[in-house]
Amino acid sequence: MKIAITAAGATLDAPLDPRFGRAVNFILYDLDSGKFEVIDNLQNLEAAQGAGIQAAETVARAGADGLITGHCGPKAFRVLAAAGIPVYNTSVATVAQALEEYREGRLVPARSADVEGHWA
């Protein structure tokens, strides 16, 4: 099972990026093997519109079974929901801390977007 986490860097110590659509990177972490890969989000960082949707497509195509991020807007949430990917909102500082929260069962799937589009 793989989980995607928005990250401002490329390691597990990296700060968790609170943005989804305009996150710097997605870290796709394999909970079974403990390995991870880094997927950059360069094309979206400068997109005028549709960044959340495209980020959701990226995460879904990468095979994520869940997403941990700071905030997720309505369009991205709709795509993730259609792809069957639960969204977990968190306010912890790093990717590693977010994974720890997830493993300990402290994260619950969001029932809706928690911010409007273009919130940041």
Partner: peptide, 14 residues
């Protein structure tokens, strides 16, 4: 423009 999105699902329209 990602105004129509299909991830092996029926498309979503924005």
């Amino acid at each position: 423009w990602h105004a129509i999105v299909s991830l092996k699902t029926r498309p979503l329209v924005f």
